[in-house]
């Protein structure tokens, strides 16, 4: 129980995937202009990351390692993730149309979200078992969600402010991200 709590705390806050490990920045900057879309994106990421860390951990531990093929992990993982995203999209479309309607647009974007591949690879590097891999995957995805939703909230407020012309658009977003990163550094004291 303690391990589970610690893992969640560490992945969500202390080692936040976006703000301290720099993974998944493209959607963090690209899809964070509205809270609604940010929520949709984080929902999709949680979903895909949980399934993909499960699949990649199983494939790595029970297929690649026994056959001495561990060096193929990058190729195998990216294909697994790409195929999985397609599969999830098809299944959702057929069986849970309501969920598909709210997450559908974001699913194809996730294939190139480096956080998903990054988590699969770090799990393997750290030698985690299947259960811990899934837990880390979910925690990381929730951390991503927290960061992107907070960012979207701030950006909605920034809209109404008078930002200097040169800093409009991406620069102000990056500055905000920097300040958020400083704030999140405070969590490292929890270690």
């Amino acid at each position: 129980m303690k391990v589970i709590l610690l893992t969640i705390l560490s992945t969500v806050l202390i080692n936040n995937v976006v703000l301290s490990r720099f993974l998944g920045l493209c959607p963090f900057l690209g899809v964070s202009s509205k809270i609604r879309t940010a929520l949709g994106m984080s929902g999709a990421v949680v979903f895909v990351m949980a399934i993909s860390s499960l699949a990649s951990a199983i494939i790595y531990n029970y297929l690649l390692v026994p056959f001495n093929l561990a060096y193929l992990k990058t190729i195998v993982f990216i294909l697994v993730i790409a195929a999985l995203v397609q599969l999830v999209e098809l299944i959702l479309k057929k069986y849970i149309p309501a969920l598909y309607k709210s997450l559908g647009v974001y699913l194809p974007l996730i294939t190139t979200n480096c956080a998903v591949l990054g988590v699969a690879l770090t799990n393997v590097q750290d030698g985690l078992n299947v259960g811990m891999s899934v837990l880390t995957g979910v925690g990381t995805a929730v951390g991503f969600g927290v960061a992107i939703v907070l960012m979207a909230g701030i950006r909605e407020k920034i809209e109404g402010n008078d930002v200097p012309r040169t800093f409009r658009g991406l620069p102000i977003v990056l500055l905000t991200a920097g300040l958020m990163a400083i704030a999140f550094m405070g969590f490292s004291a929890l270690r």
Binding site: R165, T166, F167, L170, P171, G178, I182, M185
Partner: peptide, 18 residues
């Protein structure tokens, strides 16, 4: 550290905007 990366890129993006 992490925040510095964002700050440097923000300034560069601002210069680019300019």
């Amino acid at each position: 550290l992490a925040p510095g990366a964002f700050f440097v890129l923000a300034v560069i993006a601002a210069i680019r905007n300019r």
